[in-house]
Amino acid sequence: MTQKITVRDALRDAMKEEMLRDETVFLMGEEVAEYNGAYKVSRGLFDQFGRDRVIDTPITEHGFAGIGVGAAMLGLRPIVEFMTFNFAMQAIDQIINSAAKTFYMSGGTINCPIVFRGPNGAPGKVAAQHSQCYASWYAHCPGLYVVAPYDAYESKALLKSAIRNNNPVIFLEHEMLYGKKFDMPDEDDLLLPLDKARIMRSGKDITICTFSVSVGYTLDAAEILAREYGIECEVINLISLRPLDKATIVESIKKTGRVLTVEEGWAVCGIGSEISAIAVEEAFDYLDAEPSRLACADVPMPYASNLEKLALPNSAKIVEIVKKLCNKK
């Protein structure tokens, strides 16, 4: 049995189930309680769990991120919601210097089980300060897990796993996916490993590595490429950006001989750059074409619709690049 459920509700259900399961789990962030979440992800949790476990913070990201990390060090399992990951820039010192590094610095004596979650990337027409993908920023840092789910099932199963993990987890959601409905298996206690990619579509001609909202239009592009050009794309939903699931990525590239990466972040030092390096280092002899990156144009995100569209990846751009890489006219 499956039912259709939105990503928004899948995330809420994950938090609800984990809060019922473990009393040390609590949610804090701006507008998460009485307002039911700026994007309504935490709808109903305040009514169910009360003010001790669903906590509205002042607008003070640096401070409440630090409080979350401290609470985690003393044995709680905080879920810290950032209204968007753009605002987490205020708190990035606590995320990297405190949450990610302390286990190592303490010789493995102080761990920090905390989830930092919220929407990431470009939600459309909100301009540069609210439209950035931070995947590569966090993926750069040892000590963190960085995951980005696409559908409702992944959202729920990964968030539950993230909450149970004993390390800091960066959980990158996407506003454009919150309202999207997906099939959800009717199973108790859905969990997914934080470090495994998912092959969304098998193919023999080219590997396309992507994550989050881009999985959707990459699958659309793969459909067009198969139908109209006979090109079979293997679409890898990376899910885990730290650690990257190298085995799955490399095995696929060895099979197809070609790799394209698609992301909303900038190409420079991005997730695609890392995968290109992996392709060259670990599958060089199998490559039939140069690794290619489709990413956000190298500009702060513009506001106007036409310019924003120009800056971001989409299906049509993927189709064009894949045709070129596969020598199809």
Partner: peptide
């Protein structure tokens, strides 16, 4: 901030 988190806990 971390110490305030300890107090929170």
């Amino acid at each position: 901030s971390l110490g305030t988190g300890l107090a929170f806990a």
